[in-house]
């Protein structure tokens, strides 16, 4: 599961929907993996305004990844003067698209429910009494 996807996932329980703590999910005992992917600058540019930068920063802290700047990079920073992708874009690509969670647990900040991740697949199936 890419860190990009993790930046959008919330707790699946109905009772958690209204609370702010249901996003972001917190990582516990996670194992990370780097998967090579072709860069897609246009996609990153499209996703940038939708990213929750604060959650992204918190996530990198939890995972012990290199610190992110306080502010999200602007669109201009992604492309150099010659149209070539900049270092900022490459870093974002590595972080969002190539880094993925292989196994571990995702924990809701509100109800403390743990969603297990195995082989990169997170299980969001809730037992019927918790739906």
């Amino acid at each position: 599961m890419k860190l990009l996807t993790l930046n959008f996932l919330t707790c699946a329980r109905k009772t958690c929907k209204a609370t702010a703590a249901s996003f972001p999910l917190h990582c516990r005992e996670v194992e990370l993996e780097q998967v090579e992917m072709d860069p897609n600058p246009l996609f990153i540019k499209n996703m940038l305004p939708r990213l929750d930068w604060k959650a992204m920063k918190g996530l990198t802290q939890e995972l012990g990844l290199p610190q992110l700047p306080n502010e999200a990079p602007s669109e201009e920073e992604l492309q150099g003067a010659d149209g070539e992708p900049t270092q900022v874009l490459n870093d974002l690509h590595t972080l969002l698209m190539e880094t993925s969670v292989v196994s571990g647990k995702l924990v809701c900040g509100n109800c403390e429910y743990e969603y297990p991740v195995k082989d990169g697949i997170a299980s969001f199936l809730l037992p019927s009494h918790m739906v």
Partner: peptide, 23 residues
């Protein structure tokens, strides 16, 4: 997983909702 697809996958029931934030 065997076929090594590129997207992320989740084991979830659609009838329990789509657990993503708005937009």
């Amino acid at each position: 997983l065997q076929r090594d697809v590129e997207g992320d996958m989740m084991f979830a029931d659609m009838g329990q909702g789509v657990p993503f934030r708005p937009g």
